[in-house]
Amino acid sequence: MDAVLVLPFTGIFISLLVYLIGQWLFDKTNGFFLFTPLLVGMVLGIVILMIWAKVTGSTTATVYKAYYKPGGDIIFWFLNPATMAFAIPLYRRNDVFKKYWFDAILTLFIGGFISLFGIHLVCKLFGLSATSTAAMLPQAATTAVAMPVAAGIGGDSAVTAMACILNAVVIYALAEFLIKVLRLKQIPKVGTGLGLGSAGHTVGSAKAVQLGSIQGAMASVAVVGIAVAMDVLVPIYYALFMK
């Protein structure tokens, strides 16, 4: 039995099961934000592994490594082509990107650096350990980029993944509220689009498209651009202020 359970089938099945349960809950509740399929999938998956560990008298980390990870890694690998595919929505809006490329890149680098200061400050305020702080810094980049960047400066990439997931949940739940409170409709559209794309990636892009075509285009630019910016800025920031 054990020899079978360590095969990738287990992890792939668990991943699909928990995600589909999440999707079902999400539909049933008409899109309640805490039932975002990914968030439900993540929590439910961890709970399943915890119960599994309890029943077999093992630790959750062991169960995760031995039974979930082989399958999980296969799904995780597909983040490579999926992340790379973000170039396609950017290219589709190349007309807008060509017009504002200079402003966009400048914004993502300057804004990105200031964001790192802000995040670092909040981490200090809440007394996070060095491992968690390093994990928090690159979260504006898309998960598949943020995780290795965080690991590169000594962060726990699992915490980074959680932070990225929470970004999407926050933007999904609060985008309308934040747009109103932060008066994001009153500022130039390029800024709004870049902000939503950086903070919420695909979810932010979906929200930005609802605001208008330029916002949507700039969000697509931001998903790619902020990943590049974070990859460059985080190691620099780390070397300057955290070593």
Partner: peptide
């Protein structure tokens, strides 16, 4: 293929989320 990949990306993040099971101490 690219659009298909992007449409599935939320699902592909599930293993990275469940990875936390290995860092429950933290």
């Amino acid at each position: 293929f690219g659009d298909l990949m992007i449409s599935l990306i939320a699902f592909m993040f599930v293993p990275s989320g469940i990875q936390l099971a290995g860092s429950l101490g933290l």
